[in-house]
């Protein structure tokens, strides 16, 4: 076999074997990865809505769905606001939770915010994922910071420097988390109440 042909054949075989192995590994792991993510989110709902016994997922579309156009379907899917409704053991609605996102210092900060059904006040906040600086920005995970949002409603400014105290040395992270909560709260409230 001539040399250049041999190079092509060997590389192609290595590439094909690699692709084959990876597609098998991806196929088995992607199911578990998605399950993990869904389970982590659901268990977080129990944390931000104290007393919750079961969780129901409510989908609210920003636009009417047109099922015949796959591109539009995808866009609509992205605009879907997922709201997690927490029910107690008797089936009464305790409140709802939503995911808020904003760009922090090191990447996207995702938080889950639980809101009281009767008063529309924030009950609890949990940071789902972030890539902020350890020791500085990651203090947004701490109780001391998260508790600053408890009791706030959509009527409050929820802005650093006004009704939320800053975290010294972590202004970008704290501002991003606050923005995510403020924006998410008004969107979630509109989606949740608007659909009734």
């Amino acid at each position: 076999m001539n040399e250049s042909l041999r190079m092509v054949v060997v590389l192609a075989i290595i590439g094909m074997v690699s692709a084959g192995i990876l597609s098998v590994v991806y196929g088995t792991t992607s199911v578990i990865i998605e399950e993990n993510a869904a389970r982590a989110l659901e268990s977080a709902v129990y944390e931000v809505l104290p007393g919750t016994a079961s969780v129901e997922i409510i989908r609210r579309q920003a636009n009417e769905l047109r099922v015949d156009d796959p591109k539009e379907m995808r866009e609509a899917e992205q605009e879907t606001t997922l709201i997690y409704q927490g029910l107690d053991a008797q089936g009464n609605v305790l409140g709802y939770a939503f995911v808020g996102e904003a760009n922090g210092y090191g990447g996207v900060i995702r938080l889950l915010v639980g809101v009281d059904e009767a008063t529309d006040q924030i009950l609890n906040v949990k940071v789902l994922s972030h890539s902020e600086t350890p020791g500085l920005g990651d203090r947004i995970e701490g109780e001391g910071f998260r508790n600053r949002f408890v009791g706030k409603t959509v009527e409050d400014p929820i802005t650093i420097g006004q009704d939320i105290d800053n975290l010294s040395g972590a202004t970008v992270s704290a501002t991003a988390a606050t923005d995510a909560i403020r924006r998410g709260l008004s969107e979630a409230l509109a989606a949740y109440r608007g659909g009734e």
Partner: peptide
């Protein structure tokens, strides 16, 4: 390139398995 493909394959396997079992 052959070495890199081999290495990248193993790294991707480690990445996916870790994501699934050690989230």
């Amino acid at each position: 390139p052959a070495f890199i493909i081999v290495i990248a394959t193993f790294v991707t396997i480690v990445d996916l398995v870790m994501h699934a079992y050690l989230p």
